[in-house]
Protein backbone atom coordinates (compact mmCIF):
# COMPACT_ATOMS: atom_id res chain seq x y z
CA UNK A 1 0.00 0.00 0.00
CA UNK A 2 1.61 3.22 -1.13
CA UNK A 3 0.76 6.86 -0.50
CA UNK A 4 0.12 7.33 -4.22
CA UNK A 5 -3.28 7.52 -5.94
CA UNK A 6 -2.73 5.29 -9.02
CA UNK A 7 -5.81 6.56 -10.83
CA UNK A 8 -4.77 10.21 -10.51
CA UNK A 9 -1.24 9.27 -11.49
CA UNK A 10 -2.44 7.52 -14.65
CA UNK A 11 -4.55 10.52 -15.63
CA UNK A 12 -1.62 12.88 -15.27
CA UNK A 13 0.90 10.60 -16.98
CA UNK A 14 -1.50 10.15 -19.87
CA UNK A 15 -1.52 13.91 -20.33
CA UNK A 16 2.25 14.10 -19.99
CA UNK A 17 2.77 11.26 -22.42
CA UNK A 18 0.89 13.13 -25.14
CA UNK A 19 3.22 16.06 -24.85
CA UNK A 20 6.58 14.31 -24.73
CA UNK A 21 8.69 12.43 -27.20
CA UNK A 22 10.35 9.29 -25.87
CA UNK A 23 14.07 9.96 -25.62
CA UNK A 24 15.39 6.88 -23.85
CA UNK A 25 16.82 6.14 -20.45
CA UNK A 26 20.37 7.26 -21.24
CA UNK A 27 19.21 10.75 -22.10
CA UNK A 28 17.27 10.94 -18.84
CA UNK A 29 20.25 9.71 -16.82
CA UNK A 30 22.44 12.37 -18.39
CA UNK A 31 19.96 15.08 -17.40
CA UNK A 32 19.76 13.67 -13.89
CA UNK A 33 23.52 13.89 -13.49
CA UNK A 34 23.46 17.48 -14.70
CA UNK A 35 20.85 18.25 -12.02
CA UNK A 36 22.95 16.64 -9.28
CA UNK A 37 25.70 19.02 -10.21
CA UNK A 38 23.44 22.01 -9.71
CA UNK A 39 21.80 20.75 -6.52
CA UNK A 40 24.97 20.11 -4.59
CA UNK A 41 27.17 22.77 -6.13
CA UNK A 42 30.02 20.35 -6.74
CA UNK A 43 32.54 20.99 -9.49
CA UNK A 44 31.26 18.07 -11.52
CA UNK A 45 29.48 14.73 -11.52
CA UNK A 46 29.34 11.56 -13.55
CA UNK A 47 27.97 8.08 -13.87
CA UNK A 48 29.78 4.79 -14.39
CA UNK A 49 28.12 1.47 -15.14
CA UNK A 50 29.49 -2.05 -14.96
CA UNK A 51 29.74 -4.37 -17.90
CA UNK A 52 28.93 -8.07 -17.67
CA UNK A 53 32.47 -8.83 -16.51
CA UNK A 54 31.96 -6.28 -13.67
CA UNK A 55 34.39 -3.85 -15.26
CA UNK A 56 33.29 -0.26 -14.66
CA UNK A 57 33.06 1.95 -17.71
CA UNK A 58 32.00 5.55 -17.67
CA UNK A 59 28.71 6.56 -19.18
CA UNK A 60 29.04 10.32 -18.98
CA UNK A 61 30.35 13.22 -16.96
CA UNK A 62 29.30 16.83 -16.75
CA UNK A 63 32.60 18.23 -17.99
CA UNK A 64 36.01 17.32 -19.33
CA UNK A 65 37.59 17.21 -15.87
CA UNK A 66 35.00 14.72 -14.73
CA UNK A 67 35.56 12.71 -17.90
CA UNK A 68 39.26 12.48 -17.05
CA UNK A 69 38.35 11.11 -13.62
CA UNK A 70 36.09 8.43 -15.00
CA UNK A 71 38.40 7.62 -17.91
CA UNK A 72 41.42 7.28 -15.60
CA UNK A 73 39.54 4.84 -13.39
CA UNK A 74 38.32 2.84 -16.38
CA UNK A 75 41.88 2.60 -17.72
CA UNK A 76 43.62 1.74 -14.45
CA UNK A 77 40.82 -0.25 -12.85
CA UNK A 78 41.36 1.64 -9.62
CA UNK A 79 40.01 4.72 -7.91
CA UNK A 80 37.31 5.86 -5.52
CA UNK A 81 34.41 5.00 -7.81
CA UNK A 82 35.82 1.58 -8.65
CA UNK A 83 36.20 1.00 -4.92
CA UNK A 84 32.65 2.23 -4.24
CA UNK A 85 31.35 -0.28 -6.76
CA UNK A 86 33.52 -3.15 -5.50
CA UNK A 87 32.78 -2.49 -1.84
CA UNK A 88 29.13 -1.54 -2.43
CA UNK A 89 29.65 1.46 -0.15
CA UNK A 90 30.43 5.16 -0.33
CA UNK A 91 34.12 5.90 -0.89
CA UNK A 92 35.59 9.38 -0.53
CA UNK A 93 38.97 10.99 -0.80
CA UNK A 94 40.04 14.40 0.41
CA UNK A 95 42.50 14.69 -2.48
CA UNK A 96 42.66 11.95 -5.05
CA UNK A 97 45.95 13.32 -6.39
CA UNK A 98 47.79 12.42 -3.22
CA UNK A 99 45.79 9.43 -2.06
CA UNK A 100 48.13 6.43 -1.66
CA UNK A 101 45.30 3.98 -2.36
CA UNK A 102 45.34 4.78 -6.08
CA UNK A 103 48.90 5.67 -7.09
CA UNK A 104 48.33 5.32 -10.82
CA UNK A 105 45.48 7.82 -11.05
CA UNK A 106 47.16 11.25 -10.73
CA UNK A 107 49.13 11.09 -13.97
CA UNK A 108 45.91 10.48 -15.92
CA UNK A 109 43.75 13.02 -14.10
CA UNK A 110 42.92 16.55 -15.02
CA UNK A 111 44.86 18.68 -12.49
CA UNK A 112 41.67 20.28 -11.20
CA UNK A 113 40.14 17.02 -10.04
CA UNK A 114 40.88 16.88 -6.31
CA UNK A 115 38.30 15.69 -3.78
CA UNK A 116 36.16 12.79 -5.04
CA UNK A 117 33.18 10.89 -3.69
CA UNK A 118 31.52 7.84 -5.22
CA UNK A 119 28.42 5.98 -4.12
CA UNK A 120 27.01 2.73 -5.56
CA UNK A 121 23.90 2.61 -7.71
CA UNK A 122 22.02 -0.60 -7.07
CA UNK A 123 19.36 -2.60 -8.80
CA UNK A 124 17.67 -5.31 -6.80
CA UNK A 125 20.15 -4.64 -4.01
CA UNK A 126 23.13 -5.36 -6.24
CA UNK A 127 25.55 -2.62 -7.33
CA UNK A 128 25.40 -1.94 -11.08
CA UNK A 129 27.33 1.31 -11.23
CA UNK A 130 28.36 4.42 -9.36
CA UNK A 131 27.39 8.06 -9.04
CA UNK A 132 30.53 10.15 -8.79
CA UNK A 133 31.12 13.76 -7.83
CA UNK A 134 34.29 15.78 -7.55
CA UNK A 135 35.54 19.11 -6.27
CA UNK A 136 38.32 21.13 -7.83
CA UNK A 137 39.79 21.84 -4.40
CA UNK A 138 40.79 19.67 -1.46
CA UNK A 139 37.61 18.90 0.46
CA UNK A 140 36.89 16.97 3.63
CA UNK A 141 33.68 15.08 2.94
CA UNK A 142 31.18 14.87 5.78
CA UNK A 143 28.74 12.09 6.48
CA UNK A 144 25.89 14.38 5.41
CA UNK A 145 27.55 14.65 1.97
CA UNK A 146 27.56 10.91 1.43
CA UNK A 147 24.06 10.54 2.88
CA UNK A 148 22.77 13.07 0.35
CA UNK A 149 24.60 11.27 -2.46
CA UNK A 150 23.11 7.96 -1.37
CA UNK A 151 19.66 9.58 -1.45
CA UNK A 152 20.33 10.91 -4.94
CA UNK A 153 21.63 7.52 -6.08
CA UNK A 154 18.40 6.06 -4.71
CA UNK A 155 16.40 8.35 -6.98
CA UNK A 156 18.53 7.23 -9.94
CA UNK A 157 17.82 3.63 -8.98
CA UNK A 158 14.10 4.37 -9.05
CA UNK A 159 14.44 5.85 -12.53
CA UNK A 160 16.19 2.67 -13.64
CA UNK A 161 13.47 0.57 -12.05
CA UNK A 162 10.82 2.62 -13.86
CA UNK A 163 12.57 1.86 -17.14
CA UNK A 164 12.96 -1.81 -16.38
CA UNK A 165 9.58 -3.26 -17.08
CA UNK A 166 10.00 -6.98 -17.46
CA UNK A 167 9.92 -6.95 -21.22
CA UNK A 168 12.17 -3.91 -21.48
CA UNK A 169 15.18 -5.11 -19.53
CA UNK A 170 17.03 -6.13 -22.65
CA UNK A 171 16.32 -2.76 -24.23
CA UNK A 172 17.57 -0.90 -21.17
CA UNK A 173 20.75 -2.97 -21.18
CA UNK A 174 21.13 -2.28 -24.89
CA UNK A 175 20.77 1.45 -24.38
CA UNK A 176 23.35 1.53 -21.61
CA UNK A 177 25.72 -0.66 -23.62
CA UNK A 178 25.21 1.56 -26.64
CA UNK A 179 26.07 4.65 -24.62
CA UNK A 180 29.19 2.98 -23.23
CA UNK A 181 30.30 1.92 -26.70
CA UNK A 182 29.74 5.20 -28.49
CA UNK A 183 31.23 7.37 -25.79
CA UNK A 184 34.59 6.47 -27.30
CA UNK A 185 33.49 7.80 -30.70
CA UNK A 186 32.30 11.03 -29.10
CA UNK A 187 35.59 11.49 -27.29
CA UNK A 188 37.56 11.02 -30.48
CA UNK A 189 35.37 13.56 -32.23
CA UNK A 190 36.03 16.01 -29.39
CA UNK A 191 39.75 15.48 -29.87
CA UNK A 192 39.37 16.03 -33.59
CA UNK A 193 37.49 19.31 -33.08
CA UNK A 194 40.00 20.51 -30.47
CA UNK A 195 42.83 20.02 -32.92
CA UNK A 196 41.07 21.41 -35.95
CA UNK A 197 39.57 24.53 -34.36
CA UNK A 198 41.96 25.10 -31.45
CA UNK A 199 39.19 24.54 -28.88
CA UNK A 200 39.21 23.33 -25.32
CA UNK A 201 37.58 19.96 -24.71
CA UNK A 202 34.65 21.69 -23.05
CA UNK A 203 34.14 24.03 -26.01
CA UNK A 204 34.39 21.14 -28.45
CA UNK A 205 31.85 19.04 -26.55
CA UNK A 206 29.44 21.94 -26.12
CA UNK A 207 29.67 22.74 -29.82
CA UNK A 208 29.15 19.12 -30.78
CA UNK A 209 26.07 18.83 -28.58
CA UNK A 210 24.62 22.09 -29.86
CA UNK A 211 25.08 21.10 -33.47
CA UNK A 212 23.51 17.71 -32.79
CA UNK A 213 20.59 19.31 -31.02
CA UNK A 214 20.09 21.93 -33.71
CA UNK A 215 20.05 19.27 -36.42
CA UNK A 216 17.91 16.90 -34.28
CA UNK A 217 20.52 14.21 -34.40
CA UNK A 218 22.27 12.13 -31.81
CA UNK A 219 25.67 13.32 -30.66
CA UNK A 220 27.09 9.91 -31.46
CA UNK A 221 25.79 10.04 -35.06
CA UNK A 222 27.34 13.42 -35.58
CA UNK A 223 30.59 12.35 -33.95
CA UNK A 224 30.87 9.31 -36.20
CA UNK A 225 30.17 11.42 -39.26
CA UNK A 226 32.86 13.92 -38.29
CA UNK A 227 35.34 11.08 -38.03
CA UNK A 228 34.21 9.66 -41.37
CA UNK A 229 33.19 6.45 -39.69
CA UNK A 230 30.18 4.21 -39.85
CA UNK A 231 27.52 5.82 -37.73
CA UNK A 232 25.61 4.15 -34.94
CA UNK A 233 22.45 4.44 -37.02
CA UNK A 234 23.28 0.94 -38.17
CA UNK A 235 22.71 -0.37 -34.69
CA UNK A 236 19.42 -2.24 -34.64
CA UNK A 237 17.66 -0.19 -31.97
CA UNK A 238 17.26 3.40 -33.10
CA UNK A 239 15.74 4.65 -29.87
CA UNK A 240 19.10 5.14 -28.22
CA UNK A 241 19.76 8.75 -27.45
CA UNK A 242 23.37 9.57 -26.72
Amino acid sequence: MTHIDPEALVASLRRLQKNTTATGIVHHLERIVQVVDRIFGYSGAGLMFAEEDRTLRYLFATDERGRSLERAQAVTGQGPCVAAYADDAAVTTVDVRSDPRWPRLPELLHPEVRAVAGVPIRLGGVPVGTLNVYQDTVHDWEESDTQALHAYAHVIEQVLVASMEADEKAELADQLQYALDYRVVIERAIGYLMGKHDLTASQAFTGLRKQARDSRRRVSDLAAELLGEQGPQNVANTDHAV
Binding site: T20, I39, V159
Partner: peptide, 24 residues
Protein backbone atom coordinates in the same frame (compact mmCIF):
# COMPACT_ATOMS: atom_id res chain seq x y z
CA UNK B 1 11.51 19.90 -9.15
CA UNK B 2 13.58 19.47 -12.33
CA UNK B 3 14.51 16.03 -11.13
CA UNK B 4 10.84 15.16 -10.50
CA UNK B 5 9.94 16.21 -14.05
CA UNK B 6 12.55 13.78 -15.40
CA UNK B 7 11.18 10.99 -13.21
CA UNK B 8 7.66 11.71 -14.46
CA UNK B 9 8.85 11.65 -18.06
CA UNK B 10 10.43 8.26 -17.48
CA UNK B 11 7.20 6.99 -15.92
CA UNK B 12 5.16 8.41 -18.79
CA UNK B 13 7.43 6.78 -21.36
CA UNK B 14 7.28 3.41 -19.63
CA UNK B 15 3.52 3.62 -19.29
CA UNK B 16 1.35 1.24 -21.25
CA UNK B 17 -2.41 1.22 -21.58
CA UNK B 18 -2.73 -2.11 -19.83
CA UNK B 19 -2.69 -0.68 -16.28
CA UNK B 20 -1.62 -4.04 -14.90
CA UNK B 21 -1.86 -3.04 -11.25
CA UNK B 22 -5.64 -3.36 -11.52
CA UNK B 23 -6.85 -0.30 -9.62
CA UNK B 24 -8.04 1.46 -12.76
Amino acid sequence: GELMVIVLQVLAESRTDSFPFGQV
